[in-house]
Amino acid sequence: MAIKNYKGPRSVQPKEEVLLRVRHYMTTKLITFLPDQSVEEVIEALLKYRISGGPVVNENYELIGIISEGDCIKHISEKRYHNMPSPNKLVKEHMIKNVETIDGDMNIFDAANKFLNEKRRRFPIVENGKLVGQISQKDILKATLELKSQIW
């Protein structure tokens, strides 16, 4: 009689569970924008702080949109196309209003998959209706470097 599958005795070593939550790697000190700011002010801030976009919040720090470099480029392109001076356009006219957020308790690897599937550069984190942070693709990369010596 042949043995089909013999794995032999195993020593069971409990794996230490590493909590890899979005909230541990998200950025909490954010550059935010207001809906009544001009797009030119946003462009200046993006260049000054070397960021590619940011959340738009109201006076209660509730997330109402996101504005990115692409939104600003679209504004510039529209001005150039019509070859006319245009009044200062406001953030609320160019921001993305339907913003997908993620939970701060989400596993960092689930968040990485969400980045891949949604093709986004950043996700805001909202708790109790208020913006509390943002996770970016760079934050995911930093987390993986920090954790490379640990059991995943």
Rank of each mutant, 00 (worst) to 15 (best):
C72F: 02
K48E: 15
E41F: 02
F109H: 11
A45K: 08
N128Q: 05
E62V: 00
V12Q: 07
S52Y: 02
H94Y: 15
H75I: 04
K29Q: 15
Y81Q: 09
E78P: 01
G133L: 01
P9V: 04
T27D: 05
E17V: 13
D105S: 09
P87E: 14
A111P: 05
P124T: 06
R80Y: 13
L34Y: 10
H75C: 15
D36E: 12
R120C: 00
I73G: 05
I31G: 01
L116I: 09
L46Q: 01
K119M: 00
N88G: 09
Y81H: 08
L47N: 07
K15E: 06
Y61E: 11
H24Y: 13
N5W: 06
E17K: 14
L46D: 01
R21K: 13
L34C: 02
K79C: 15
N117I: 04
I66Y: 01
Q37L: 05
R120L: 00
D139Y: 08
G53A: 02
H94M: 14
L141V: 15
V99L: 10
E127M: 02
T144A: 15
R23E: 14
A111V: 11
E62H: 01
L141A: 15
Q13I: 15
K48D: 15
I140G: 06
K130P: 02
I73T: 10
C72A: 12
N88M: 14
Q37K: 03
V57Q: 01
A143F: 06
H75R: 10
A112S: 12
I64Y: 01
G65P: 00
R23I: 06
D103L: 09
W152M: 14
